[in-house]
Each structure stands twice: as C-alpha cells, then as structure tokens.
Design a protein around this nucleic acid. Structure first.
Lengths: 361, 361
DNA sequence: CGACTCTAGTTCAACGATGTACCTTGTGCC
DNA sequence: GGCACAAGGTACATCGTTGAACTAGAGTCG
C-alpha cells in the first residue's frame, strides 16, 4: 500500500484535539480493494455486473472505512438529493406540529429527508416557496398554503419544482402543471361528525367553533368549512339552522369559556360538534365543571385526533384526518413526480375516519 | 452549437403540459453577457475584481434568467451546503415543536436550512445521529439527546460532524472534540421560580409535576431537575422538605386532576410551582373550578412560556427558556464550528428569565 | 473452430461552481 | 520610451459520483 503523500487528517500528538477526519470517498474504498470506483458505485446502487465475492468485499470495506455517499456529488450527476421541502405555516400549533412529525416519519421510511421551511411570515414567504427559494436544493416541495389563495397559484402555469399542495384552499381546477393536490374535505368531515351525533339520537346539536371576530372568521377557512358541513347535516335532518356557538380562539381555554355560555343560553343542548380537539378538550372540562355528564347528557365530538385525545375524560370521539396516511399519500405522489412523472395535476381526497371513543357513542 | 444527441426533456407538442425548465446554470448567465463563468461567480460571492458596470449587468441577467446556485455543486467545491440537521425526539409536544419553530426561524435568518431528523424511535435512532446518518448532507448537527446518556456521548472522542448538544443531560466534562453544549439549567430555573413565590410572601409552596410512576420519574430528567431546584429553594428558605404533588402526565388534564387532589389534601397551599405550562394551565382551570382565586389565594407559576401562556386567565407567570435565543446561540456556535473553529468543547449556559404575569406577582 | 453472447469488470467524460494561476489592458511616472 | 502595477478579467483543474461506452475472458452453440 503506497503512502499517501498528504496524510489525510493525521492525528495530532499530545493533548490537542483530534482533527476532524475528511470524508471518505468512493475512491478510497476502491483503492483499498484494488477495484475501480465504478465497481463500488455499482455495489452501492445495486447494479448488476458485480460478482458476489467482490460485492461482499466492497460492502465490508464500506463498513470498515465508514464510507457514506456525498449527496452533493449525487445531485450533480443525477439531479436529485433525496431532500423534500416541507413548507408549512408554523410548527407552533398542535395540528401542524403533529403533521410535520408525520411527514418526518414517512420521509424517513422512504429514505428521504425533510427540509423545514416555515412560511409563518405570511404572503411574501409563501410566494417565495412558489418562486423556488434562493437555492436549488430539494427535489420537490410539499406546500400547505394559508395566505396564498387560488389567484396566485392559478397564475402559475407550471411549478418550478415538483409540488404537492395540501389543504383545502385551492380549486381543483386550475392547478399548475407539475403539481398535485391532496385535499382534506373538512366540510364532509364535519358533516359526518354532526350526523354521528344525530344518529345517536341527539336532537339539539350545536357547532362550537365559529370565531367571534368576523374578520378572523373570514380568514380562517378551516373553521368556515367545518361550519358549512355542520349546516349541511343539520339541514338534511330537517332541523333548520342549528345553533352555532362562537369562540375567541381555537384553544382549550376558548372551548371552556364558550361551553359555559352555551349551556347557559341553550340548556337543551345534547350534542356539541367542536371545531377541533383543543376546543373539545376545553368543552369536556367545562361540562365536567357544570356537572353535566358526558356522554350521558351531552355528546361531544372533536376534530383532528390529536395525540392527547385518547387520554381525556371521557376519551374524545373525534374525526381523525389520519396525518400519517396523508403524509404517506403526499410523499408518494411527490416522489412519483420527482421520478419523472409529468402527467396533469392529480387531486386526491385525503381519507378521514370517525374515531368513536367515550365522549360520543 | 452542436445538437444534444439526447434531447433533455423535449417539449411535448400539442396541448400537453409544459415541460419543467432545466435549471439555469452560471454558464448560461455568463454566455448571455459574453463574460466568463468566473465573473458571474465573483459577483455572486461578492469577490473583488469586478467592475461596477459588469456587476450590475450580471445581477440583471441573474434576475432575468432566474438563476439560482445549485447547492450540490457548491458542496463539492466548498464542502458546505448551508444545511443544518436538527435532531430532536419528536415534534409532538408543545415545547419541542415551538423549539423547532425557533430553529427554523433563526436558521432562515442566517440563510441556512433546517433538516428535520426525528429521533422518536429511541436509542437506536439517536445513536445513528452520532454515527453520522447514512448520507453526507448537512454541515452540522443540533442534537437534543433524550435516551442517550453521557456514556454514549463520552465514548466518542470526536464527533463526525460539527455538533452542538442541547438539553440538560450531559456532563460538562467529557464532551467529544468538535462539539459544544448549550445547557438549560432547569434546576436553577425551578429554584428561581420557587423563590419568586416565596418572595411574594407565600409560605406553603408546592411543586406539582413529579410523575407518579417511579420509572417514569427516573427517566424524565427534566422533571427530576426541576423538582431538585424546588427542593433547593424550599430548603434555603428553611421550610423543610416542601410538599410535592404527583401527576400522571405532563398535560393539562394531568394538572387539572392533580390540583384537585392537592387542594383537598393540602388546603393550606398558597403557591404552586408547576412542572411546565401545560400542567399550569390545567392547574388554573382546576383552581377556577374550585372557586379559588388566582393570584389572590394561590399563586401559580409554570415553566416553558409556551405560546398560549399569555392568554390563560389569569395570564400565566412562567419561566421563559427563551427558545429563540437558545436557537440563536446554538446556531452561532455551530456555524462557527462549521466555519473551521476547532477549539475544545464549549459549554454555554442558556439564559432564561422569569416572566411575571397575572398568576403570580 | 469461429461467431456469438454473457459476465464482470474498466475507462472516460461529464454534472456546476470556485480557487489558483495567468493574461490583458490602461495608466502613472521616471 | 520603458517599466511597474493595478483593475478587470480569462483558462483550467478540481471536488465525488454515475451513465455510456468499452474490454477481457469464459461459456455456448451451430
């Protein structure tokens, strides 16, 4: 074995800190075995034309030298990095942080990494997602727009990178080429939730979750859509308009306060459809405080199936948007596009299911 | 110009979808202006030896062509990507998701991107962080170990990538070369919190947050350290042992249930130090339910200063670990290491401060 | 036996950006 | 006029990996 003229990261003698080892390259692996670089590459990429003995020796050497491919070089050759950008409004908030976690898990399972891009700053930040960031890095984008509406998205005739939109904002038509869309049908979900309570024989079912500030209500499309589903179910059952209880914020405190008002003004209430599980948790606490039995006197149903929902007293019945499945679907679509698929935009309805626990049913 | 034998993604005729444009390269920018590639590079990297006129023309062309540097190529030349790996247990949970958000913000401010790596799976996943993932991608790692203790970290004599540990687990001595450590002093913080209540004249101050399952208590070092700080403050004030109220989980429900038990068994309680803000929120609700005035009869203090803390009734006094500042400190240390600094491990105490709101003081 | 095919490899040229070394002007000054 | 020198560039090698194209040898078959 010839001596390397430039000792690669020689250990410093004495008590000084050891020097960070240079990254091992394929060349070093190849040289140690006396094979060509390409053979090492073939082993790594599971290409044919490598004998089993050689394959084994290469794998051994890779382990011993602790070799890892350098993604930058791969990007140059192949154009891909295995990186996916997740652009969401903010991690602060139960739903989005759990969603991000689901994406992290599912991406890891598919041997991709997630790059986090927070669009909390608003419209401008969101626009930068669509115009393609400042550096070419990821292979594709998962984008949950909040501020940006159909107008901006529709203005594109083609996304810069493969993109999958998620959410409930966009029109199904008019998606730019090169993108897909995974819709969450919040209206139908809320309709199902409401109907579940009606099916249990409840006759005075209330929606708790409209925002009490009008502008907020306008902007908060999730709230709007869920309310709409509630109205549909109530109307279908021939119960007229239905009672709607507003809240200041979609938090536990908000739910707790609102349910006290509600039960005072509408003591006949026997079912409450909550905008989300945080609200529902507050509602459960509030009802307990008022000495009202759940689900004996009042049934309560939430939305989101957050991690804590099974642990409330009683356990919360809720709509599970199945974040894990959503992430899986989104990633599969995106990876297909990254892989070269360039068909017209696909729209997929994200599944959700009713999780029946103690609080209703 | 010779024709490319393999047309790179030729446009489909007819009404088919438009084809994704190939990435613009520096060469194209240079050719359009009739300057050399290097000049474009010099403009981008703000190198000297470019005349103002040329500089302006280049910038113009970059904008027009929508050129963006390709990170893979940069990694090859310079060895860096501007990517930082954030390895944390899980995004599910208020504290960690807010922390991740802080890192995302601060990284964006420093023109870096955050790669999310969830170590929720446990020891094995955490070990893989230290042994350097499966691909060379990021420039450095921010690592909040939970399961992994000093033994594993101390076993390393040098980290593979520049690494900053965060948390409260590790001994300050024995950190591997190439790493730094930003400590959160949970014990002192809890001590300060307790002392704040004592300074307000409270004499029967309780710690609410020990876990009621012994093994859980063992593992949950945050809880242990905060309890320890509580004990220190109580002992220092000459109040003996101090009362400790256990909880089943560090959630709002946990706090609500526990405070009911507490006030039954220790009605003399006039101050409650909560393990975190989720617990404290439950405590506030519980006290309200019991008709106990906060802060009139009982002062309540939390820990973490989560986003909802200012909005409880009354607003929650709490210890603010200043996640934004923590993220900033961590990133600055890490970026310095990435930049080549290779001094001995540094240990930085993360600042925290007492945020006085309505619930105490 | 010669023409094939198959296997297990090899060599070479890229991918895009940047550091180093070099070249070309124009200008000032003796 | 001749020389030094700076400003504003250019040319080229290089980073690590992989696709395309090639080769040497062994096996197969008419």
């Amino acid at each position: 074995m010839p001596l390397d003229p430039v000792a690669p990261a020689a250990a410093v003698g004495g008590g000084g800190p050891s020097v960070r080892p240079r990254n091992v390259t394929m060349r070093e692996v190849a040289e140690r075995l006396g094979v060509s670089i390409k053979t090492v590459s073939n082993v790594l990429n599971e290409r044919p034309n490598v004998g089993p003995a050689t394959r084994e020796r290469v794998q051994q050497a890779i382990r011993e030298l602790n070799y890892r491919p350098q993604v930058g070089a791969q990007q140059m050759r192949t154009g891909t990095t295995g990186l996916i950008t997740l652009a969401i409004p903010s991690l602060a908030g139960t739903y989005f942080s759990e969603l991000a976690q689901a994406f992290a898990d599912e991406a890891q399972r598919r041997r991709r990494s997630i790059m986090l891009h927070s669009t909390a700053a608003g419209r401008e930040e969101e626009a930068s997602v669509l115009s393609g960031f400042t550096r070419v890095l990821g292979d594709g984008v998962v984008f949950n727009p909040l501020q940006i509406g159909e107008d901006v998205v529709a203005g594109l005739d083609r996304t810069i990178q493969p993109t999958v939109f998620i959410g409930e904002h966009l029109e199904e038509t008019g998606l730019p080429a090169g993108s897909d869309y995974v819709r969450t049908d919040n209206a139908s979900a809320a309709e199902d939730a409401t109907r579940h309570l009606l099916d249990l024989g409840r006759t005075h079912v209330v929606y708790l979750g409209a925002l009490d500030v009008v502008e907020a209500q306008q902007a908060h499309s999730t709230s709007r859509l869920r309310l709409c589903g509630f109205h549909r179910a109530i109307a279908e059952a021939g119960l007229g308009e239905g009672v709607v209880q507003t809240v200041p914020t979609w938090t536990q405190e908000g739910g707790l306060g609102a349910v006290q008002t509600l039960m005072r003004e509408h003591p006949e209430t026997d079912g409450i459809v909550c905008g989300n599980d945080d609200l529902a948790r507050g509602v459960l606490l509030g009802l307990r405080g008022l000495g009202i039995d759940v689900p004996g006197q009042v049934s309560v149903i939430g939305h989101d199936n957050i991690l804590e929902s099974p642990f409330t007293t009683p356990p919360l019945t809720t709509i599970d948007p199945d974040k894990q499945a959503l992430a899986a679907t989104v990633l599969d679509l995106l990876i297909e596009r990254i892989g070269g698929y360039d068909g017209p935009p696909r729209v997929v309805e994200a599944p959700y299911r009713l999780v029946v626990r103690g609080s209703a049913g």
